[in-house]
Design a protein around this nucleic acid. Sequence first.
RNA 1: GCGGGCGUGGCGGAAUUGGCAGACGCGCCAGACUUAGGAUCUGGUGUCAAUCGACGUGGGGGUUCAAGUCCCUUCGCCCGCACCA
Length: 800
Amino acid sequence: MKYDFSAIEAKWQKKWEEAKVFEATDDFSKPKFYGLIEFPYPSGAGMHVGHIKAYSGLEVISRKRRMQGYNVLFPIGFDAFGLPTENYAIKTGVHPRKVTDDNIEHFTAQLKRVGFSFDWSKVIDTTDENYYKWTQWIFLKMFENGLVFRDTALVNYCPSCKVVLSNEDSQGGKCDICKSDIVQKSKDVWYLRITKYADKLLSGLETVDYLPNIKMQQVNWIGKSTGAFVNFELKGIDEKLRIYTTRPDTLFGVTFMVMAPEHPILEKHQDKISNYADLAAYKDECAKKTEFERTQLIKDKTGVRVEGISAVNPITGKEIPIYISDYVMMGYGTGAIMAVPAHDERDYDFAKKFGIDIVEVIKGGDISKEAYTGNGEMVNSDFLNGLTDIKSSIAKMVEKLEEKGVGEAGVQYKMKDWAFNRQRYWGEPIPIVHCEHCGMVSVPYEELPLRLPEVKNFEPGEGGESPLAKIDSYVNCKCPKCQRDAKRETDTMPQWAGSSWYFLRYIDPKNSEKLADPEKLKYWMPVDWYNGGMEHVTRHMIYSRFWHKFLYDMGLVPTEEPYAKRTAQGLILGPDGDKMSKSKGNVVDPNDTVDRYGADVLRVYILFMGDYASAAPWSESSVKGCKRFLERVADLPGMVKGSGSTDGLESLFHKTVKKVTTDIEELKFNTAIASLMTLLNEIEAKGSLTKDELLVFIRLLSPFAPHICEEIWESEGGEGMIALAEWPTYDEAKTVDATVEIAVQFNGKVRGTVVIAKDATKEAVFEQVHSDERFAPFLDGKTVIKEIYVPGKIVNIVVK
RNA sequence: GCGGGCGUGGCGGAAUUGGCAGACGCGCCAGACUUAGGAUCUGGUGUCAAUCGACGUGGGGGUUCAAGUCCCUUCGCCCGCACCA
């Protein structure tokens, strides 16, 4: 058969679309499979080979599951709000709507050319008002339930771009866009109280099947620690200094206190602090330090002694000095610590630099040289002396603190509340009205979606305001509660918003009454398998798990967790082995490969190139190898002879069915394809195969190379389309050969092989070995010390 | 610094979990064919020795009849978190 891939691929893509073969049905009687890939941001650059790899994994699994009789939902959509589109609009004056529509059209054409089996009837676009209506709706539900609040925060601000930047966009203290210096600016910020769900987000991980490193990253991100809060009296002012510690057992070793430079107590009691000017100067200096500088100077401790006030150890009654230092941060714990230099490296460095006492309370190290952070016997600690178990020391101290009313057990999280607004145009408008009399008021549900107004230019306003703030007709409105004049919120939601619940909307994308029909949700949720990049396993996944858990608590979704299983693919590197990037000029365009070799070759190559979860460099010549493979497959129909099974191939066919079936489920696509190549080699060596065998072969190959397999299926008179043909099954008994060739070792060295019956007894095997003259030289004149036979695997004879 | 992962031919990578290391593909070598192609086909291809064989999974040591796989030690890469009290 001539392998005219472009004609074949265009033909079948059209047929699939016409026959709607990939549309999920709401037939709740069938077993379901919901496979989810991370929907793309439709950038102007078009698709990348990395997109193809990211989607190919679940593409193959979805195609296989369909053939196995599942009702498969494998949807696609576009996460289309975001900065690049907006920046492009600012530069060119083209409306973001138009840019987005063009890019989506381009992406859609590319995705269809690769032959992905997405359900295009359920495509979603986060910037569609019928979608973001529900994003706003969920936000209002959170607002009503106390999960939304407003606070001032220091933000990274670029005075040149007039834009507030995320930490990622301001690395090294320079603006990512214009490279000018970032300044810290105080701003009103919307927050989502994700920390309220910290414990649920942590415990929920025990119920899901994520790759271990993915779970680990999430646990790390949530960062739960247990310890105690302790209140220290302050001498000189009527105020207590509250600290958090994970090691209350070391309280007898506290020789100083450290507060974050921005700690509010300092400013509040500045009249009692004799060197307040010094503290203020230090604080300013720290504010100027960028994230970069702070981490670079990690070992070099700086700080200032607070004069005029001191702290009192609540257990010993001893008076101890207070310092401020930027190694203590306002954003974690209480913004103040008790310092135990003998047993904490940071406190040790600080104490050495400032000449503060170091008191050992745990034996085992040499505190004249370094801090000792290990276990040991408690000393210099009154009622704790002699204890060796940290847990019981902590318990005893906490008990004492609670008894005296100066502290209590507590937990802390690294995870912070989610800053949920951007001063940008191309995002979901936050549906809140600010009223002088009523405060913050929800936009009524019946007024959703709150649409983005038309604006003439998308540049941010002075001081980093949203472009929406310049539109009087948008800003000025009536308070929904009291009907008096009010102002509309002009910030929009961050890009993470729309992707926090999209997997729910796919289930019922056109519903105008609800975010999705509860019956459909009950059938389709949870997502059975979610695959994507490692870069999204913390933020996106945790944010979306949080939204889902909130919706579950509202009774709006049927499962506590959105994703039952999560895996991640590895990167495709450039041919030079480096990460692909425009600046390096090593980016591979999937279109080139499709043009030259066809979509089937591209698909097979991307899954054959290596372990799916690992990074692997692109190799043009290996692509050609996959082309050769499919060309040889296209020639198989010419080799068909008879029916049933070919002598000598039956067992290999059963083995291959088994291997491909199980490998696909384990994301071992490379070895699945390799086993099909091996089978093809054997078929060619035999010179023929039966029609039944051909039909098995192409069904196994069809998830990887669907177009050519449909073509052969049709030419061989297969029933219907191969996309919905029955997945081949295997007979376990037939995967085992009647005879096996096993290695014969003498003293652990292989000296030859013998062919034996698969169920031969140990005695029979050794009789055969001993009577085989090839092995005589290794036995003559030697004493057999031990004979080992591992059934079906190996013989080892130890001789002397 | 802490946490996780990895290290196998010239290259991408296999290895049923302790049982013939290098499947499959690329590349390379030799040959065939030719309608001279971004071909195709056949054979070979871990290293050294070229006869038996010896050595080989970053290095060193160990357990075992048997180690890429398990243990100890050491070196080198990659990823994540990073002054989290």
